[in-house]
Write a protein that binds this DNA or RNA. Structure first.
Lengths: 192, 192
DNA sequence: GCGTCGACTGACTAAACAGTCACTTAAATT
DNA sequence: AATTTAAGTGACTGTTTAGTCAGTCGACGC
């Protein structure tokens, strides 16, 4: 039956995502998640021992999905500039394709829940990207700044542009142009 | 006694800030806030009819403080570039001087609580800054982009640099240099 | 056709919660 | 001196919450 029936664990995570984004962690009791998902509360705690672990599982799953989706498009063959451009575009496109997921990640990352995750667990995920950035700096293609600062700059520019694009209604074409233009600006900022 | 005894309303907001930043909205009951502040729970609800209103009051107070502290340093006489630079520096310095306040604002802004505030209330607060940015664009000192996009870019770069500076231990001098350098980069990005 | 095992259930409970209310206190007003 | 008013109290309550538990159910080997 695995192929036909919805995996209940997944269904719970999916429902939790929607409710957390809409109502916040505070105002979404586990009972509501289970009810909305059409699953017994006992089942929720069968899969996730506590509400905190449900929230953290959801974060790790979504963070993993985003990272994977972005990294898949980063083949080694491209030039350094192309790698950074691809990272920028893919991050932005993922965030626009998955607004709920992105919103949840932002909410989680800016809450005290973030501290409940091991720092290594985070740095492990961004390590491959940092390697690319480090390379770009060593090749002297890019200004000589701390690689973590570079990472913070690009991430937060992606966040800002997402904010702007989400707050307005643009056509696909307009969106594409804004992404291109803002990357051009970003590159101007960091190129040596 | 007003000058000697701590204003209880203020004391409650102050205590709430610390607990919200440390534990999140979820895990900070009103009873804990009152107890920690050494004030009866009834008094909390005397000043703030609901927990939500306490949270929103705190947000509005802090957002106002930040805005005021930044705007005070924006005299009209300066050149356009100086105005943007001052805005950048002041934002960053306020965030570094007030880490708890900044953390709370980030947590609030990325949570569903934000939607409980009128959009006008927010746009009213950033209006003066946007006027400056609009002027800079009209003067052709800066690339011709939507002023809201410019605002998003500068805000999020401030956020990113704050993240980087907070995550590391720098001397005042190093901090100052990083602020200068990143503004220089930012200006390179947006100058025409 | 018996036993076990993992997925799943939902009524239940103990604790915690936001918010109430009858009351006190102290200062200002009349 | 009497009265009103506003600030402040904390025990209390009805509700909600996260989490439990005794047990159902079908599958699958034996």
């Amino acid at each position: 039956m695995q192929s036909e029936s919805m995996d209940k664990r997944e269904k719970l995570l999916q429902t939790a995502l929607e409710l957390f984004v809409k109502q916040g962690f505070n105002d979404t009791p586990t009972s509501k998640i289970a009810k909305e998902a059409g699953i017994a509360t006992g089942t929720l705690f069968y899969f996730f021992p506590t509400k905190d672990e449900l929230i953290i599982s959801l974060y790790l799953k979504l963070k993993g999905q985003a990272t994977e989706s972005i990294n898949v498009a980063l083949p080694e063959v491209k030039s350094t500039k192309e790698v950074i451009k691809t990272y920028y575009e893919q991050s932005l496109k993922w965030s626009l394709r998955n607004p709920n997921e992105f919103s949840f990640l932002a909410q989680f990352s800016n809450s005290p829940y973030l501290k409940k995750i091991g720092a290594d667990e985070i740095s492990a995920q961004i390590a491959p990207v940092l390697r690319h950035f480090r390379l770009a700096i060593e090749e002297q293609q890019v200004v000589d700044i701390d690689v973590n600062l570079l990472y913070a700059l690009i991430s937060n520019q992606v966040f800002g542009v997402n904010q702007f694009l989400s707050a307005n209604k643009f056509t696909k074409k307009e969106q594409h142009n804004i992404i291109q233009d803002t990357f051009f600006m970003f590159w101007k900022m960091i190129e040596r």
